[in-house]
Design a protein around this nucleic acid. Structure first.
Length: 664
RNA sequence: GCCGCUGUAGCUCAGUGGUAGAGCGCACCCUUGGUAAGGGUGAGGUCGAGAGUUCAAUUCUCUCCAGCGGCACCA
């Protein structure tokens, strides 16, 4: 029996300008482009069909709103980068037979592909692979989409030794079409869409680095070898991107920390910071600012022990949940005999605190608390130690000894929302004072394994959400990412190269008060559990200062700058006057240094500019005679000559701590 | 912790199977110069640590340590 000839149904496509083109049957994006103009065939990369992105060579057999994507479109880069990942994979499999492909998505600024190979790639391989990628682009291999049967696909990929691909297919939801993209002799399972041919990728790509990455992002799985690359529309964009990376490297807080003499790290205390006088000046300015803001928001500052007995941590739950991150110390007098073992026998175990919360609960528990005492807000610049994995350490951003601007709010359940709102408002106000407007906010909701009843979680999550809305914050929900004891808000800031770091946080906790038996007497005369809010604005002083250095490229606002002004001379004739200027500025409360070295003014200006000193007060014979100073501000070449008093007054005004009341 | 790379003077980096070099910085001398490097002289290095190969190792091999880039973890 013959199939009846398919009835050709006309297809009408509506273009973005509203015009409609009708074809006598199914039509590809490519044909539509040709119908519109030959230039478009060349420029077209893919086509939007009712909002979904399709391959140009896929037949459209129904009426639809369409838009042809060219490299100018937003989203074109994603497509380009995804194709670059495929070309990378093809190149790798050509060059290194037996290498398995896994996944290769586009990411911000580029793409990567994870390969399974006994021998990991090294950076030397990149040049060879990249050269092969260029060949594949030159071959201009046609890329075609095929829909496969699920089981056939699994069998096929298994048969060619691609067990990861087979696993991916097996895990795809039933009913999801299995699409395989063929480019030349090479093929890969992929959702698509893709460019019509490899030639469309162009030459504006570059392989950047190799790295290890766990299969499916799980450390229990085997490690794959990942190749990162970047891809752009044209060479000019690629060059601009590489330039951007170079510029970002100049703002690296580790580099600036050295250049500005702020801090250093050394291997005998890895992960713990040696703060130099300059850096600690910034620290103190920031800490005092936060101290002022907290006092204004009704917090009381406390200080709790560093070293606590292991039984304390057992009670808090840290011993079972967090011990691998804790520094444990035996409480024993070490042997003074050089040849004897340092420690012997069985001593009690102590641990350096990794968090402040259990200690704050102890303060709460002293005496009997009434509902009238709530909310009780206990703040501490708490120095904590966490034994972070070696590979996690990163300058100031990830350390082992950290000082949090920590506080715990003990309150009634009905106070959770108002406390959360107040916290968000405080946080935003602080970030604004510190120059950060661009904050990524995440609401991490209940994880699968959790303590507490769902009704409580409902309330807690809603409380946090309400707080975000009340504070006018945009946020993203990260489901399942909350702590086991409660949901949390995370406030992320970006570093110089776009990596984001969590700084502020607000976590609701219904578990710890229970575990440590904290209670208050309510109006009904009964004992009730308080709710605990763990919260930090900066997160840790270390990380926040690291972020600030990069954010400001070292050019800290005057109130935070270690040295606010340098007074320097043209010739030694003005030394006496310079000393007077310096003394007067100091008296006015400025952090000022005197530089009367026998060096040329060019040299001294250059040096202090490199050190990121915000203001240079140059004095020569003329200024000395007139009681004036020549002010040169960092980042400009301008010089303003003004009376000494005016210059000092202006600097003092600018150096005022934000949100502080001006001196009367 | 896992994968890759790196480790030479205070900093940035060159270099070599026969124990090392530059620029900047530093010290001293000359220079008193109006807003991003004035000139000269000099002092600095167990070439990350340990083992191995070798007549000889900073150089080659192995182990360890640390740093860097990712992954995982996380403020």
């Amino acid at each position: 029996m013959n199939d009846p000839a398919p009835v050709k149904k006309p297809v009408s496509l509506t273009l973005p300008d509203g015009s409609v083109r009708t074809f006598d049957g199914p039509v590809t994006g490519l044909r539509l482009a040709g119908d519109i103009g030959p230039g478009l065939v060349k420029a077209a990369l893919a086509i939007y069909v009712n909002g979904a992105l399709w391959d140009l060579k896929r037949e459209i057999d129904f009426d639809a709103d369409v838009a042809i994507m060219t490299s100018k479109d937003e989203g074109a880069l994603d497509l380009l980068r995804h194709d670059a990942a495929h070309v990378l994979a093809e190149a790798v499999q050509e060059l290194f037979p037996g290498t398995q492909v896994t996944i290769g998505p586009n990411i911000e600024d580029g793409f990567y592909y994870d390969f399974a190979r006994d021998e990991p790639f090294t950076e030397d391989d990149l040049a060879v692979i990249e050269a092969r990628m260029h060949e594949i682009v030159e071959r201009d291999e046609a890329i075609t989409r095929e829909v496969w049967d699920r089981n056939e696909a699994i069998d096929h990929f298994k048969s060619i030794g691609e067990i990861y691909k087979a696993e991916i297919i097996a895990d795809l939801p039933e009913g999801e079409p299995i699409t395989v993209y063929r480019q030349g002799d090479w093929k890969d399972l992929c959702r698509g869409p893709h460019l019509p041919s490899t030639g469309k990728l162009g030459t504006a790509f570059k392989l950047m680095k190799v790295a290890g990455a766990y299969w499916r992002g799980d450390a229990r799985n085997e490690m794959l070898t990942r190749i990162y690359g970047t891809a752009w529309r044209d060479r000019k964009e690629l060059k601009a991107y590489l330039h951007r990376l170079e510029e970002a490297a100049k703002r690296d807080h580790r580099k600036l920390g050295r250049e500005m003499d702020l801090f250093h790290l050394q291997e005998e205390a890895q992960g713990s910071v040696f703060w130099h006088p300059n850096g600690y000046t910034v620290w103190l300015a920031l800490e005092n600012y936060i101290r002022m803001r907290l006092a204004g928001a009704g917090y009381r500052e406390v200080k709790t022990p560093q070293l606590l007995d292991s039984k304390f941590w057992e009670q808090s739950g840290h011993w079972s949940k967090f011990r691998e991150n804790m520094f444990v110390v035996p409480d024993e007098v070490p042997s003074t005999d050089e040849d004897a073992p340092v420690l012997s026998g069985d001593s009690r175990l102590m641990a350096l605190k990794p968090m402040n919360c259990p200690a704050h609960v102890q303060i709460f528990k002293q005496g009997i608390k009434s509902y009238r005492d709530l909310p009780l807000r206990l703040a501490e610049f708490g120095c904590c130690h966490r034994n972070e994995a070696h590979g996690a350490l990163h300058g100031l951003m990830r350390v082992r000894q950290m000082t949090q601007d920590d506080a715990h709010i003990f309150c009634r359940e009905d106070q959770v929302t108002s406390e959360s709102v107040a916290f968000c408002q405080l946080l935003i106000s602080v970030y604004k004072d510190l120059g950060f407007d661009d904050v990524q906010v995440k609401l991490a909701t209940r994880p699968d394994v959790r303590a507490g009843e769902d009704a409580v979680w409902d309330k807690a999550e809603k409380g946090l959400e309400d707080a975000l809305v009340a504070a006018g914050l945009e946020y993203e929900v990260t489901p399942g990412e909350g702590a086991f004891y409660g949901p949390k808000l995370e406030f992320h800031l970006s570093d110089a190269i776009g990596r984001t770091w969590q700084c502020g946080t607000l976590q609701l906790d219904f578990v710890l008060p229970e575990r440590l038996d904290a209670s208050y007497i309510a109006e009904d005369g009964e004992r009730h559990r308080p709710v605990m809010l763990h919260r930090a604005i900066l997160g840790t002083l270390e990380r926040f200062i690291g972020i600030m250095i990069e954010h400001y490229a070292g050019r800290l606002p005057l109130w935070l700058a270690p040295t606010q002004a340098v007074v320097t001379t043209i010739t030694s004739d003005a030394d006496a006057y310079a000393e007077q200027v310096c003394a007067q500025a100091k008296t006015a409360g400025l952090r000022v240094k005197l530089d009367v070295r026998n060096e040329k003014i060019n040299y001294k200006v250059r040096e202090h500019s490199h050190a990121k000193v915000p203001a240079i007060l140059v004095v020569g014979k003329r200024e000395a005679e007139e009681g004036r100073v020549s002010v040169r501000r960092l980042g400009t070449k301008d010089q303003t000559v003004m009376p000494l008093e005016d210059a000092i007054a202006a600097l003092v005004d600018e150096a005022r701590v934000p949100s502080s009341t001006p001196a009367a």
